[in-house]
Design a protein around this nucleic acid. Structure first.
Lengths: 227, 227
DNA sequence: CGCATAACTCAACAACCGTTGACCTCAACA
DNA sequence: TGTTGAGGTCAACGGTTGTTGAGTTATGCG
């Protein structure tokens, strides 16, 4: 990570305009006439690569992950990975792309009944870590934020200006930013201890028990009186 | 990190016996007669390398750190780094070596008056992160545990069989392991948010304020009734 | 002084990295 | 059916990596 420029903030690739394709996907692309040619995204290979990438980023972090390893577990050529995503950085950014429904759910939880908000937020967050399809990206994000300054900046930005801001307008707590970051620190730390360090008994106890232990703290951060 | 064997569990180097020196230091080495020759560890270079290594591991994680970068900021040749520490893995292990006084202090805090144990433990831990000379190794450990499975195993071992065990015999709480890991998760998470993600206002508020906010939760984990 | 030993440098090794461009193979439409 | 564009492979590039061995310089003791 010194000879590879990190995070294509405004990609040199696109600026010069002579890089490889890296199809934008985008879903809502105006789908112009398209006179013939094979259809994009029909074979599941792109998704297979993405899954392999997430897994590797989750286990090894950014610098520890290699394009070749991703390609190998996906069963394709390394060049195909770049063909799909343009660069390692772009792949990484794609892997970190936070599921939109998380940003939607947190404000909705905060808008619910205040009496049980701690328990509901705690359970929602812990279950995200437990389910493989959401837990893996989360682990990836967590590890990468710890080992990559650009990832930390991205997380900072996402949490600060996206998640907290939307939560603030959906609820009527005072000092939402303080309350939410305190709660977030609490929740993330417990998941770090359970899923990454894997320290007993945090790693071995049931999710329900864990929620019972932690939820009161979260409740206090969200609805308790502040010093 | 695939062509370099990770963590010299029983070092091939020592097994074959024909690697480079990597002076064991060890402090208590029987210091045999020593008839002439330059004395070891007189120039501060070894420490300079260690400081540079800690800094790099703290910022870049294991895979993101290169011997050459360490050598460069220490102002020496890359080969000298290996001369001192034997391998990148051994250097890494040396950097992670936890200051012994931390393992000493936690049991002492737990043995103190139960009424204020949460506040004392919280303040002690947070101040560790604040002071540069202890904060840097902690950040290094935190990042490395997140990005390196062997580091996670080391942390797991240290916390499980060292810290918790010693705390258990020094105090008389019930289910110390559960209480201590819950408290630890809480504390680590807040420091993660403050020092690594640097999310406001956790990152900007004073240490005293932070202790005021978090200490009650820690107190509850340590002395509260368990579900 | 002269020997022994540690500190330290230098150049090179093989392995592996991200990335590239040329090339081939399919699937879908005109 | 021929054309078109996406899926996919291949070999190679320049550069960086951890590690090594041989060699040089500095330092302390007899």
């Amino acid at each position: 990570m010194s000879y590879a420029r990190v995070m294509p903030r405004s990609s040199t690739r696109e600026a010069t305009g002579r890089g490889r394709s890296a199809p934008e996907d985008g879903g809502a692309t105006a789908r112009r006439t398209h006179a013939g040619g094979r259809r994009a995204g029909q074979s599941g290979t792109r998704d297979a690569v993405l899954i392999a990438a997430r897994q590797s980023f989750a286990r090894q972090g950014y610098a520890g992950t290699t394009i070749r390893a991703i390609a190998s577990t996906a069963g394709v050529d390394p060049a195909l990975v770049l063909h799909f995503f343009g660069s390692k950085d772009a792949l990484f950014a794609t892997c970190l792309a936070f599921p939109q429904d998380v940003a939607d759910t947190v404000p909705r939880i905060l808008a619910g009944p205040a009496r049980t908000v701690g328990e509901r937020l705690t359970r929602f967050y812990f279950e995200l870590w437990e389910r493989p399809e959401t837990g893996q990206p989360l682990r990836a994000m967590f590890r990468s934020v710890a080992s990559n300054e650009d990832a930390a900046r991205m997380a900072h930005e996402f949490i600060g200006s996206h998640l907290v801001a939307r939560a603030a307008e959906a609820s009527n707590y005072d000092r939402v930013d303080l309350r939410l970051t305190l709660a977030g620190g609490q929740l993330a730390g417990v998941m770090y201890a359970r899923h990454i360090v894997a320290v007993a008994p945090l790693a071995t106890m049931s999710l329900d028990d864990l929620v019972r232990h932690v939820a009161p703290s979260v409740q206090r951060y969200l609805t308790g009186t502040l010093p």
